[in-house]
Design a binder for these strands. Structure first.
Lengths: 338, 338
DNA sequence: AGCCGATCTGTAATCGTTTTCAGTTGCCGA
DNA sequence: TCGGCAACTGAAAACGATTACAGATCGGCT
């Protein structure tokens, strides 16, 4: 049984063990030109000493960190969970590492992490910023390329990958309209640009159908949605259907409906965003917009790599379409209802 | 408008701008003894140059990486998602960074990441290993402390935080028994030690009640559970209830029940693990064991820090109890059934 | 024999920090 | 006036790698 090395061995130890210079060891490791005999001696020495290169030293010298940052609001948001997997996979295949940070929609924490990213000298950043940070992003003079995801400025100085939010929201409205619903309410998050974009799509689609939009903006929690629905459904002008801008709200709506004894879709139809596995299982199944999460993560990394190769190419903004997954929660409206 | 710095400024640039030596700059940054006058000059220079310390250099010199590794099978598993948040928060408060890796239950990928951890010279690792790696973990001679989570060797050389899996599984069996169920089947994952432990608890509890255990081991996917249930429920000796060892299987059971038109709990009761938000919303609500995920993450970090302070203190194994959240999916058995 | 070029190897500089050690001040008391 | 001490500051040596440059060896050619 080998005694655990007290301290990691360095390239010098390997050089000494092999009876060569550190340059030779480095060359063996980096595929430089080395004679077969020495190469073998060095490789044996590497095994014998249990040598592992020190990445800090390597990065310092080479000025490449081989690291991408990923800053999102909360990894527990399933959208970001999925995107992070795609990003991590892409990084893995490119031989890079990922540093993951949760900003909690908190600009201070976000700022701290941006500073960290600079200190890490990351190769690039994939970023879902808060509104506040998005506004001052151009003034920040970051030293690495940034690819925005999910949130996004209209015509930014940065590459971006986003869902076509207005169109997606409109799809939901159109679908509900086709199923016979007219009084369609909207619940949107009040912190992100995403909520705003989806609201805009909702508003436009309603107008196009000659319906009156009725939107409320709430904090991004299920509870907030539950409360909003309960209050709203007690009103005289209660809606027949809800379009909501994320899966937390979807939960809130279902909970409220259950508590008030309103059947879905009999008394209340629902449609929302994010095709999570459980949306299929709840009640009659929930109609949702499915985001191409894999592709969003992959494309973000792809844009990042393109930018690294051609730093001066014009900014690109990738707008991906969502797909509407129709389920029971938007079943045809019963004329008898109400 | 300031032109973007072509290259990050180093401590030398600051020193030059402030007209002092680099040592002084370093002391200002690190709260060393510096006169007020110079401190001010340096701080101004730092602002003027937009200086950010280079963490690679700092780590190389100080030999502290201030980084913890987190290697789990898949961040999309909600248990790990939640744990990762707790870990990240703890790290954030301790001024440390987190490197997140997904092993996909793949020993090769796991090995690659363990190597990476060594090259990063991480401060410590929080690790949910595959069975294969768990077995040879002692022979790996890692140079940093490891805290195991979720999976775990009986009496290892490493600290660990785990759920009391046998007891938790037994709680589910006892609960179902109390509700009148007798033919209680079990579905367990065939890759992790967790599945094995939960099976053991299930087996023991069944035996204690004088019931015959009937367990099957399946691949860790919802589809596998769905298929297993469909086949099993077509048998002559079909169970009245299922105990399943994770939330993916829970989904599989619900899907199968729905497809076969079996009402829950009328024709089929279900209980499982992981109190995810949606388990409340599916059907009559699903009875589950809730793991103290926050505490698991926090405790893992706490154990890590203790170990760093006292490298030689005896290994500790924290066993946390789950709580049984009772919902409609295990409603009292109808005598009329069958 | 002498020269050239190809091929390998080693020396030493470098990346950006921290930290030791050795000054350099200025102040105080004698 | 001078020694001594405290308080600060700077020069230089690490940390562990990569790499430009130069030196060594050797075969082949004239």
């Amino acid at each position: 049984m080998s005694a655990p090395a007290k301290t990691a061995s360095s390239i010098k130890d390997v050089a000494r063990a092999a009876g060569v210079s550190v340059a030779t060891v480095s060359r063996v490791l980096g595929n430089g030109p080395v004679s077969e005999a020495l190469r073998k001696r060095v490789e044996d020495a590497v095994r014998a000493t249990g040598y592992r290169p020190n990445l800090s030293a390597r990065r310092l010298r080479s000025q490449h960190s081989q690291t991408v940052g990923l800053v999102v609001s909360d990894i527990r948001n399933p959208f970001f969970t999925a995107v992070s997997r795609a990003v991590e996979d892409a990084a893995y295949h490119a031989g890079m590492r990922v540093i993951l940070c949760n900003s909690d929609e908190n600009p201070e924490r976000e700022e701290l992490y941006l500073r960290l990213m600079q200190e890490e000298r990351i190769t690039g950043l994939i970023f879902a910023p808060t509104r506040a940070t998005l506004d001052r992003l151009d003034r920040l003079d970051l030293e690495f390329p940034v690819v925005l995801i999910d949130r996004n400025a209209p015509a930014g100085r940065h590459d971006a990958v986003v869902l076509d939010n207005p169109q997606a929201a409109a799809m939901l409205v159109d679908h509900l309209h086709a199923r016979g619903y007219r009084r369609i309410a909207g619940l949107f998050g009040n912190t992100s640009t995403t909520g705003a974009e989806r609201h805009e799509g909702y508003r436009a689609a309603m107008a196009a159908k000659g319906l009156v939009p009725a939107a409320r903006f709430i904090a991004p929690y299920a509870d907030a949605a539950e409360e909003a629905v309960e209050r709203w459904m007690a009103d005289a002008d209660r809606p027949e259907a809800f379009v909501v801008s994320n899966s937390l709200f979807l939960m809130g709506v279902v909970k409220a409906a259950r508590r008030m004894g309103l059947s879905i879709p009999g008394r209340l139809a629902v449609a929302g965003f994010d095709n999570e596995p459980w949306t299929e299982l709840v009640g009659p199944g929930l109609t949702v917009i499915e985001q191409p999460v894999q592709e969003i993560g992959r494309s973000a990394m792809a844009l990042l790599f393109e930018r690294l190769e051609q730093p001066d190419r014009p900014t690109r903004r990738l707008v991906l379409a969502g797909t509407c997954v129709v389920r029971g929660s938007t079943g045809a409206r019963l004329e008898a209802a109400d």
